[in-house]
Design a binder for these strands. Structure first.
Length: 556
RNA sequence: GCGCUUGUAGCUCAAUAGGACAGAGCGCAGCCCUGCGAAGGCUGAGGUUGUGGGUUCGAUUCCCGCCAAGCGCACCA
């Protein structure tokens, strides 16, 4: 459904024009008309400060402007007559009649309630997590996973054609190190005296991985006789297992991808060469000190960046450029959103500059950075390092606190700010946990609907015009915020509003529940009307939870 | 040194592109189940939005300085 806000903006614009035509307002240019939601309920459901913005250019008192605006506002079914409020606001209140009708709209839209048509089918790729497959994912990756998958859900709800993608860094230095580490662990497991490379992955999970690889098929003869071949062969198996483990871990967090894109294929299919060719043709490649550099300085950067090392091995940056060319040129995504950890922030301007150098508008690329997550257990900080092997995996966190709790917590803070994730808190608070509060509301709703079914109550003909109680209308108001929220989140890519909205929606339901008896033998008509409202609440709350990638439990 | 992000109630965080009296949860002090789920509802206390300037009808929000925290400034990814 279209957010009411748009309708109001058109209404205001019309009233200005009407007032101008009637000579009540001077013919001044209009700023963008913004419709905002007042904090104070006394100020109505929506408001515009347009008169305040017009005051100077119109040379009039803002209250007078507001007055004339109101006088020239056409009647609309959505709202009561607008009101003027000093120092120059126009306040709008949704009409009770229209509000009640929206229960029917919500029910009709069902699982699609919350959808808005702003994307127009534009193709957007959301690439997220993309952890090097050299070790298990941890809570920091979990944050990116939750952020990326929720943004993808939101964009889909907003009418975009969304692709979820994981970029598999299966080429390059870290992969080599991973292969050699695995080889070492396998050799050690077979009783050979082999030293772990200095840059190797020391984590205990590599020992387990080695065991799994060995268990799969005998490798003994390979290991000592043909070391290089063994490293490659074992590495390929290890990579598959590691990727499968990552896929499982993310899957248990409700995160799924449409495509796992292999970095190596960029080299195998010549796309890497093509990208470098384009840069060369455009004059952005410079040879210096035996290496090939991207002339980033000519693109406004403060230093150039190496693309091909003097050893002839391309850097990560080089393949990333080829990857992004693939996204935009080969696959034709109109927009691309990358979700990265904040430790990659330095890479952002470089990549955007490089994308520009490829002749692609850099504004089509959005890079979101999620700040660090510090894992705590009680007061103790739990360090995360793949190298030293001290790691608490995402899977362990999920096992401990549950996927829904994990998602809700990771989502509730703005990606821009650092956060602590306290395992003890997530568990010990579980009684008064906001996650349970929200899900409890859904379970309660489900329980009411179950009871209605048990008693054989048919509320399909319920008369929603009977919903006159303050708490009923407050609940409807809250539900109607969802499409509006989807729209703004699709634009600002800030999904942390979702958990907050979910709590507000749950509160509105609990308040309604407290004040309004739903199923009552003595008032069958009101019962039917209220059951419709309850059903609509279930729809809105379930959709909110699903957008967050959470479950909407029927029972708890 | 330069750059990015952050600084809001005792704690954890909001504030929907500059709006009206800065809001939630937890914690704290109380109140409410002889009917649909008390994992619930209600009331109260709690703030000089790090700090000093500026922009304007209006600033938590925009600009500048300072202070503090995290991250980044590789022929690592």
């Amino acid at each position: 459904m279209e957010p009411v806000r748009h309708r109001l903006a058109r209404l205001v614009e019309e009233s200005v024009k009407r007032a101008q035509a009637a000579g009540a307002l001077p013919q001044v240019a209009l700023p963008e008309i913004t419709i905002e939601r007042p904090h104070n309920p006394d100020h109505g459901d929506y408001a515009t400060g347009l008169p305040l913005k017009l005051a100077r250019s119109a040379g009039m008192n803002p209250v007078d402007i507001a007055q004339r605006l109101v006088e020239h506002t056409a009647a609309a079914e959505e709202i009561d007559p607008p009101e003027v409020a000093p120092p120059g606001f126009v306040n709008f209140r949704l009409s009770a009649g229209w509000l009640k009708e929206q229960v029917g709209t919500v029910l009709a839209e069902g699982e699609h309630f919350g959808d808005v048509a702003v994307g127009n089918g534009e193709s957007v790729q959301v690439e997220f997590v993309s952890v090097n497959p050299t070790g298990p994912v941890h809570i920091g990756h979990g944050r990116g996973a939750v952020l990326g998958s929720t943004i993808a859900n939101i964009l889909q709800a907003a009418g975009y054609d969304v692709q979820r993608e994981y970029y598999v860094n299966d080429a390059g230095n870290q992969m080599d190190s991973f292969y050699r580490s695995l080889y070492t662990r396998v050799a050690q497991a077979l009783g050979h005296d082999v030293e772990m490379p200095e840059d190797g992955y020391q984590g205990a999970y590599m020992i387990e991985l080695a065991q799994e690889v060995i268990a799969e098929s005998p490798v003994e003869s390979l290991v000592m006789e043909r070391k290089e071949e063994a490293t490659r062969e074992l590495g390929a198996r290890g990579l598959d297992k590691m990727l499968a483990a990552i896929r499982d871990d993310l899957g248990s967090l409700g995160v799924h991808f449409d495509l796992w894109f292999s970095e190596q294929t960029l080299f195998d299919t010549g796309q890497y060469e093509e990208a470098m060719e384009v840069l060369k043709k455009e004059g952005y490649l410079v040879q210096r000190e035996g290496a090939t550099w991207l002339a980033s300085t000519s693109l406004g950067e403060d230093k150039d960046n190496v693309l091909v090392r003097s050893t002839g091995v391309p850097t990560y940056f080089a393949s990333d450029i080829a990857y992004h060319r693939n996204k935009f040129v080969e696959r034709g995504f109109q927009r691309v959103i990358d979700v990265w950890g904040s430790d990659h922030q330095g890479h952002v301007p470089r990549l955007k500059a490089a994308v520009g150098a490829l002749g692609i508008d850099p504004d089509r690329l959005t890079i979101l950075l999620s700040q660090l997550v510090t894992l705590r257990r009680g007061g103790e900080i739990v360090r995360l390092s793949k190298r030293t092997g001290e790691i608490i995996t995402l899977q362990e966190v999920i096992d401990e606190v549950g996927a829904d709790v994990c998602r809700f917590y990771l989502l509730s803070r703005s990606a821009d700010s650092q956060m602590d994730f306290d395992l003890e808190l997530a568990k010990t608070e579980s009684q008064d946990n906001p996650v349970y509060y929200v899900q409890y509301a859904h379970a309660r709703i489900a329980s009411i609907l179950r009871l209605a079914t048990e008693r054989g109550i048919d509320f399909s003909n319920g008369d929603i015009s009977l919903l006159d109680h303050e708490a009923e209308q407050a609940l409807i108001r809250r539900m109607l915020q969802l499409p509006e929220l989807v729209e703004t989140m699709a634009e600002n890519l800030e999904p942390h509003h979702l958990p907050h909205y979910a709590q507000e929606l749950a509160t509105a339901f609990h308040w309604f529940y407290k004040q309004c008896r739903v199923i009552s033998d003595s008032h069958p008509e009101l019962t039917a009307a209220r059951l419709k409202l309850v059903d609509a609440s279930r729809t809105a709350l379930a959709r909110t939870l699903h957008l967050m990638g959470m479950t909407a439990p029927e029972r708890m």
